[in-house]
Amino acid sequence: MDIDRRDINIHMHGNIWTDLASLFEVFFKGTVIDSIESTAETAMNTGIPLVGNTVMTRLDGYFPILPNWIVDWETPQAAVVTDTSFAIGCKGLMFDKRIGEEEPAIAIPDMPYYDSTKSEKYQAYVSAYSIDGFFNSLIEVVGIHGWVNSTSVPASIPVQLNTDTVDLLLPGIKKHYGSGVPVDVRFNVTSLGNFQVSEANEEMSGTTTLALEFWVEPEGAATEMAADLTLNDIDFKFTALVNNMDVSLNITKLNIDTIDVISDTFGRLSSAALKLKLNNAFRLGLPFFNILLNSNPIPVPSNILGIFELSDLTIGYHDDYIYAGATPTFIGPSSAAIEKFEQTVETLDSISQAYAAQDEPTSIQSNLEEALQVTQ
Rank of each mutant, 00 (worst) to 15 (best):
T329H: 05
T329W: 09
T329I: 13
F330E: 04
F330Y: 11
F330W: 08
F330N: 01
I331N: 10
I331E: 04
G332L: 09
P333D: 06
S334H: 05
S334D: 09
S335F: 07
A336N: 05
A336W: 04
A336C: 00
A336S: 12
A337C: 02
I338F: 05
I338W: 07
I338S: 07
E339V: 08
E339H: 13
E339K: 14
K340T: 09
F341H: 03
F341K: 03
F341I: 07
F341S: 00
E342V: 10
E342D: 02
Q343H: 15
Q343E: 13
T344W: 05
V345M: 01
V345A: 15
V345T: 11
V345W: 08
T347A: 07
T347M: 04
T347D: 06
T347V: 15
L348E: 01
D349M: 13
D349F: 10
S350H: 10
S350N: 07
S350E: 08
S352E: 10
A354E: 12
A354Q: 11
A354H: 07
A354N: 13
Y355A: 00
Y355Q: 01
A356P: 02
A356S: 05
A357W: 05
A357L: 12
A357Q: 08
A357E: 10
A357K: 04
Q358T: 15
E360Y: 10
E360S: 10
P361E: 04
P361C: 08
T362H: 10
T362L: 15
S363H: 10
Q365D: 10
Q365T: 14
Q365M: 13
Q365H: 13
S366V: 00
N367Y: 01
N367T: 00
N367G: 05
N367M: 08
N367E: 08
